[in-house]
Design a protein around this nucleic acid. Structure first.
Length: 630
RNA sequence: GCCGGAGUAGCUCAGCUGGUAGAGCAACGGAUUUGUAAUCCGUAGGUCGUGGGUUCGAGUCCCGCCUCCGGCUCCA
């Protein structure tokens, strides 16, 4: 048979030849360094046969940044970890250990709980294994035999995995450790030049809260120690962008033990908040939304009607007053339905778009709270659109257009997810078919790339979710556009149609920035605290060189403030160098130094980061005014 | 909520096997009047997260709780 090499040349091989055979045929050195073979674009274990006519590419240890090569390296590293765990802690049961982005993990059930000291011990053991030499052997077996093997070995998790594994059952062995595994794996452990175990965490077996919690060991591995160092350095840099740290340093927001998960906004943070609120109000008005205001607390009957009492109660703060049960609102929608129901409606009013940045409380599990990104008290730039079925498409598209208007303003990189029906839901399958179909159609019209996500929808409807990543690459949902046919029905909402009959409206729930808290959190990380001029709490700081310049500095500040800019004079008796340093650390975008050399025609301006220039007060005001516009 | 870790001055952190709690920055006072990332001197500041226990003696050892951090589950 013949295979095609990357340079388009053909290589003649005996039938049944493997990737490794191909590498050997090309050169011994290549075979030595080979990590995996990419055949017709997909990864394949070097030990597996090639097919006639396939285009192949042999990846080697020199492809040290190739995601597939790293994937294989880390997968093999995970197996070494499992071998080490079983040797160091006899009686350990192994569960599952895949490579992940930036590393790998392996889940174990240790006979005794282990603490962090285990990381070092395990790491040492793995190094010993690598020094000793390990190579992987691969073979296939029947499902029954695989199951029998693991039952005999006392590995219940593996035995269970055999039953759900897809395709042929293959085993890999290195040292005395045999694992059920699809592969591919390295030929031997030689290429693993850097390995580090990073952390220990609990993880439920198969991600199911009701099943045993295993101990997950996270680690990472590289072809080159330098790459590991680089990775650790990047993590360290990301830590400096952490919004919790920056929020405190820049005096934006805070937290107290006395209100877990509920942010406090300092004046400087409130400036950011208000700019976002102004933007929301302006655009809502421009796009045909009307603002409303609804209560914070409702009788449990409202939550029964909406379905929240059934499907969302564990996330709600509840209280009892004079024998009546109340719930603090976790969402605005039921209140908006109630508001809608308080007056009669005609088809002529639709689509009716009502917006409210209401205060929401959700009783999130204590372990999930995370700075501003996951809180118990938050505010969304929320709105609900009541419309006819015929209007759904236009409204969905308008929502997405609005969303991307905002994301483009802030230059955000957004990932789109289509969250489909969950198990825990209201309504008929026909409703869900229709609602999901409408969202798919709207997405198709926009041409946005998206990933469908089974079971992630809300209990009342499917959603288009708009995600962004934080400094450590963790994904957070910002915006969401949801189509709901359930609540209008449950609330008995109606409108009088042009046929004089009563109809039920459809309802679109949408938040675009999402929770303002979360938005500020990810945005601070996105910018590393270097907020654009529009959002900067303090836009210009003026530094008088000596006391004698104070009056002039103040009048320049007044001049800029009259233009609507946020300007301040730093009148502390510190050296100029110190005051410049402080302005930089506080990330003030513009610093003006005012001394004997300055006049309204020649103002000395320093931009964040150190660029200096001289301009006139008028030109400066104009530049700032233009840049501070949204 | 669960698993692992942590909590010492406003912030960042030191405090070995139990023996009277420390530094830098910030704050405050004084001197300095400064030209593009830290002027100098001084002062003050802590029920060591919290409740209990062991001990002659606990920041340090043990137990409960709270909060935070990294994960899991969950989610805007």
């Amino acid at each position: 048979m013949r295979v095609i090499l990357p340079d388009s040349s053909e290589l003649e091989l005996p039938d049944g030849a493997t990737g490794l055979d191909a590498a050997r045929a090309i050169g011994p050195k290549l075979a030595e360094q080979a990590v995996l073979v990419r055949a017709n674009g997909s990864v394949r274990d070097l030990r597996l046969p090639l097919e006639d006519g396939e285009e192949i590419q042999i990846l080697t240890t020199r492809d040290r940044e190739d995601p597939d090569a790293l994937w294989v390296l880390r997968h093999s590293a995970a197996h070494l970890l499992a071998e080490a765990a079983r040797r160091l802690y006899p009686g350990t049961k192994v569960a599952i250990g895949p490579p992940i982005e930036n590393g790998f993990y392996y889940d174990f059930e240790f006979p005794e709980p282990v603490g962090e000291e285990a990381l070092e011990l395990l790491e040492e053991e793995i190094r010993r294994e690598i020094a000793e030499g390990r190579s992987w052997e691969r073979w296939e077996t029947s499902r029954d035999e695989a199951r029998r093997y693991f039952v005999e070995e006392g590995e219940p998790y593996k035995a269970e995995l055999v039953d759900t594994a897809e395709g042929d059952i293959s085993f890999y062995r290195q040292g005395d450790f045999v694992d059920l595994c699809r592969g591919p794996h390295l030929v031997n452990a030689e290429p693993i030049k850097a390995i580090k175990l990073l952390s220990l965490a609990g993880a439920y077996w198969r991600g199911d809260e009701a099943r045993p919690q295993l101990t997950r060991v996270y680690g990472t591995a590289f072809f080159d120690p330098e790459d590991l160092e680089g990775y650790l350095r990047r993590i360290e840099e990301a830590r400096r962008r952490d919004h919790r740290r920056l929020g405190k340093e820049l005096g934006l927001f805070d937290f107290s033990e006395l209100a877990p998960g509920m942010p406090f906004w300092h004046p400087r943070g409130m400036v950011i908040w208000n700019v976002l609120e102004d933007l929301r109000r302006r655009e809502n008005a421009r796009r045909g939304y009307e603002e409303v205001r609804t209560p914070q607390l409702y009788d449990s009957d409202l939550w029964r009607t909406s379905g929240h009492w059934d499907k969302f109660r564990e996330h709600m703060f509840q209280l009892e007053i004079e024998g009546r049960d109340y719930g603090l609102k976790p969402m605005n929608c039921p209140g908006h339905c109630l508001l809608y129901s308080l007056a009669p409606h005609s088809y002529r009013e639709l689509p009716l778009r009502i917006a409210e940045a209401g205060n929401l409380h959700r009783n999130e599990l204590s372990g999930v709270l995370h700075g501003l990104l996951r809180v118990r008290h938050f505010v969304q730039d929320d709105a609900h659109i009541f419309c006819t079925n015929e209007q759904i498409q236009d409204e969905l598209l308008a929502c997405l257009d609005y969303a991307y208007y905002l994301y483009d303003l802030f230059e955000l990189d957004i990932r789109v997810e289509l969250s489909l029906r969950p198990d825990n839901r209201l309504g008929t399958d026909q409703d869900w078919d229709f609602a999901e179909g409408e969202l798919v159609k709207a997405l198709a019209t926009t041409g946005l790339d998206y990933t469908p996500s089974e079971g992630e929808g809300s209990f009342y409807g499917p959603k288009i979710d708009l995600h962004m990543s934080d400094s450590l690459g963790r994904s957070w949902q910002l915006g969401t556009v949801q189509l709901d046919l359930q609540m209008p029905k449950r609330f008995g909402l109606g409108y009088q149609g042009d046929d004089n009959a009563e109809h039920t409206p459809a309802m679109i729930h949408r938040a675009l920035l999402g929770s303002l808290e979360r938005f500020v959190g990810v945005y601070v990380e996105h910018t590393g605290g270097d907020l654009p001029l529009v959002l900067a709490p303090e836009q210009v700081r003026i530094l008088p060189v000596a006391d004698s310049h104070l009056a002039d500095a103040e009048s320049l500040a007044d001049r800029l403030r009259a233009e609507g800019l946020r300007a301040r004079v730093d009148e502390r008796e510190e050296t100029l160098g110190k005051r410049i340093r402080d302005a930089e650390l506080e990330k003030v975008p513009y610093v003006v130094v005012w001394g004997d050399r300055e006049s309204l025609d020649s103002v000395s301006v320093r931009r964040r980061g150190g660029d200096q220039s001289v301009t006139s007060a008028d030109a400066l005001a104009e530049e700032l005014r233009a840049a501070a516009r949204l």
